[in-house]
Amino acid sequence: MSSSDIFIGEIIGTAVLILLGGGVVAAVVLKRSKAQNAGWLAITFGWGFAVLTAVYMTGSLSGAHLNPAVTLGIAIKDGEWGNVPVYFAGQLLGAMIGAALVWVAYYGQFHAHLTDREIVGDPADKAIEGPHDTKNTAGPVLGVFSTGPEIRNVWQNLATEILGTLVLVLAVLTQGLNDSGKGLGVVGGLMVAFVVVSVGLSLGGPTGYAINPARDLGPRIVHALLPLPNKGGSDWGYAWIPVVGPLIGGALAAGIYNIAFA
């Protein structure tokens, strides 16, 4: 794989991942969506199918890492770091593009949700920014773009992201890689999609299971930039946890693999 193939593949794959993953969240939480209130099962399976679609679409081009934690885990396993910055750059850019496309697809729903008097100013919405925040009036809108904890406890939130990502990356390293060992194969992509669903169902409750730094950071940047009325803050005080936690989890998974499986 050339660097250009990796960059283009990761942009396309991560954009599709966020378009479909963020799209299912928007479908469930925004007003005037036909899927409104479909629930957590719809979100977790939607993210799983998003992974499956993106992996099958771009696996032959870049290996479909689509996640800096996966890239880091594979690099530690193999000791090859040359293309890591290319993967990271493609993943972040792709995540931002995907988040912008979610906004395009649900433009009317965002507008209806953010300008409806029944929604704006709901005190319950402040849970997204924290009990002391007075600027957020957007309710679950930030959650379409990025994750946030139900209970703000730094060590617990960080540990949850570490554990979820450790399971994901260890599954990739032990079962998901293609014959070259550089990315996900066809069977591996299916398995990883089910692992994402499992992590979401079992460990997604506390933080919304980012388990992917690009998936959280890229869309959070887009949320901050988009001209959405009454959108509230982007919760930058929490933003480091879904970046650092998954990277630690990916590194730990690679360490466990090298000790126990290599």
Rank of each mutant, 00 (worst) to 15 (best):
E118L: 10
P140K: 08
Q175I: 01
P140R: 05
A112E: 15
Q109V: 09
V104R: 08
F45C: 02
T14K: 04
T58K: 01
A89D: 13
G204E: 12
D116C: 07
L93A: 13
A239M: 09
S202K: 06
P246E: 14
G121W: 10
G59N: 13
I76L: 05
G249T: 15
I74W: 05
D125A: 15
Y87Q: 01
G188F: 00
G23Y: 05
R117D: 15
A38T: 13
A253Y: 08
T58R: 00
P206R: 00
P68A: 12
L92G: 10
D122E: 14
Y238H: 10
P246Q: 13
G9R: 07
G98Y: 10
L225A: 14
I256W: 03
V55T: 01
K182D: 12
V70F: 00
G204R: 04
V199G: 09
N212V: 08
T134E: 06
G94I: 03
G200L: 04
L201A: 14
G46M: 01
E161W: 07
V29N: 11
M57N: 09
A95H: 05
A105G: 11
V24T: 13
E150M: 04
L177I: 00
W240F: 14
G98K: 06
P246V: 14
A193D: 04
G63Q: 10
V28R: 05
T207R: 07
M96T: 12
L72H: 10
G23W: 01
T58P: 04
N83T: 11
G23M: 03
W47C: 00
I74S: 09
P85Y: 05
T160H: 05
L20M: 11
V141K: 02
G13S: 10
H223T: 14
G48R: 02
P227Y: 09
N83P: 09
V192R: 02
W236K: 04
G94A: 09
N136V: 09
L30I: 11
I6Y: 09
P246R: 13
T71N: 03
D122K: 05
F7S: 13
A35E: 14
T174I: 03
L177S: 00
K182A: 11
G59K: 11
A127Y: 10
G121S: 12
H223R: 06
G250V: 11
Y238M: 07
G233M: 02
F88K: 01
L177V: 00
I211N: 07
Y56S: 01
T71H: 02
G176K: 01
L252P: 14
L173P: 00
N178L: 02
N178T: 06
K135S: 14
R32K: 15
G9Q: 12
L201M: 13
E80P: 08
I43T: 07
G176Q: 01
T165E: 06
L203G: 14
G208A: 11
L92K: 07
I256V: 15
L225E: 12
I12D: 12
A105L: 06
G237N: 15
L166C: 07
N67T: 02
N157H: 04
K31H: 15
V29M: 08
L72M: 08
G39S: 07
L92I: 15
K34M: 11
W40L: 05
I12K: 07
S198W: 10
R220I: 11
L142C: 04
A193W: 02
P242I: 12
G63W: 01
L166Q: 07
Y107H: 14
A95F: 03
M57C: 04
